[in-house]
Design a protein around this nucleic acid. Structure first.
Lengths: 233, 233
DNA sequence: CAGGCTCACTGGCCTAGCCTGTAGGAGAGT
DNA sequence: ACTCTCCTACAGGCTAGGCCAGTGAGCCTG
């Protein structure tokens, strides 16, 4: 991802999009007007005029709100409110200041600890073999002076697969990108790869022994280690 | 894919939206063209012509993809791909073949137990008040002979909000639709609403006392109760 | 009174056009 | 020769206005 830059954040320079502002305003309107689920928003032509934008642009904002699950647009009727605004604001917050690291680590921790426990319960011999292979890959990378990033990713994927929980696996994939960033940062610290490898071994042994509690515990400690480093960054 | 529906679904009669179809097609295109993160999609005017739609409609589809986190549209440059295509297919897959109930309950349990613990740690007085209001709402519904479905939903939303964890909240929203179904089924059982209300009270008290362990425990038991019933169905 | 029709709404989508941002290449200045 | 500036082709952003297609309330007829 991208070239750039020194220490400061510095992204790509925020470009304001009209429809994004409209989403904000509409969210605010919904809240202040105390609209309840099932209520209708004003008509498109009306809203567009009041907000001083074209219908086309307003339509984009409505699409965004629909994708976010806030409204449900019905041809011939209008845009009806779905959930309560509180949920909308949570989503809003997520998009704005892209989630902070602690939030991501928190979500990752929640999911992976559970996945580790489930993996210990449900793993097949094939699953275990895949985990061992990932561990081996990571060790080889580190011996070659690498960070073991690839093996690390493989390891977590193997554990996820071993849990045999489709929905949790999908949720992990959803935050996968963010988790990856976290992981890469942590592995750049000298000495960390070895520590990380060691905690991977603990997890693996618990899964091998089919001990859910130990697996959850080992994963928890592993994530705490990683997130510690990430936060120092 | 596809909605379909032979036997009973029946809702509001699906209304096809052009931009939704475009999202599907673009997702397919991205996959088949083996585009990688960082690659650019063809120009708007080009795409619009190829797909046989106006730029305005295509723009809506691009907004949808942007909200879904698949692309990142840059003025003057084009639409650049963000995640791996896998994320796109995850979203697609999750919407399509709805996952099995046990898997959903498992994911819900994982997330909500953690959310309950976090809520106990982080709740403000306002959060607590919102939870109390939801509880009251549910009690009123049940006293009126209702199932308390609305209050139930409000309650879980309030707890989620009280956890102040954007990413976890987002994940909950992701599986929210499925969870709702689970919940509604369970509440149709006679006598269940009261039991459900009682366990809500336990959770609330733990959150009030700011006791994470008790909150997690109460939520865990609550979900076991609900899922038991759902599985009987 | 019941059934059907009309019409005034709603959103859906299109065409056409002008604006602004981006980036690469041509040409001027060093 | 190098570099810096400026030009311009092309990207998306947004608007204006128009026509088509559902929806539902009210009227009008049998």
């Amino acid at each position: 991802m991208t070239d750039d830059a020194s220490p400061p954040p510095l992204g790509r320079l925020a470009r304001p999009r009209l429809y994004e502002q409209l989403v904000e305003q509409l969210l605010g309107y919904i809240e202040s007007a105390k609209l309840r689920p099932g209520d209708l928003l004003p008509a498109e032509r009306d809203l567009a005029e009041r907000l001083g934008v074209s219908r086309a642009t307003l339509a984009q904002a409505l699409v965004a709100l629909e994708v976010l699950g806030v409204i449900d647009v019905q041809h011939g009727t209008g845009a009806v409110l779905r959930h309560r605004a509180s949920v909308a604001s949570v989503i809003k917050g997520l998009r704005e200041h892209r989630s902070r690291l602690p939030d991501i680590v928190e979500a990752r921790s929640t999911l992976e600890v559970r996945l580790a426990a489930l993996a210990a319960e449900r793993r097949t011999d094939e699953d275990l073999a895949a985990i061992d292979r990932a561990l081996e890959e990571m060790r080889a990378e580190i011996d070659d002076g690498g960070r073991g990033a690839r093996g690390d990713e493989l390891f977590h994927q193997a554990v996820t697969a071993a849990a045999h929980s489709p929905v949790l696996a999908q949720l992990m994939a959803f935050i996968g990108e963010m988790v990856l960033e976290t992981r890469l940062e942590s592995l750049t610290q000298p000495g960390r790869p070895e520590q990380s490898l060691a905690s991977h071994r603990s997890i693996t042994e618990a899964v091998r022994a089919q001990d859910p509690v130990a697996a959850a515990d080992a994963m928890q400690r592993h994530i705490e280690l990683v997130s510690d480093v990430a936060l120092l960054d």
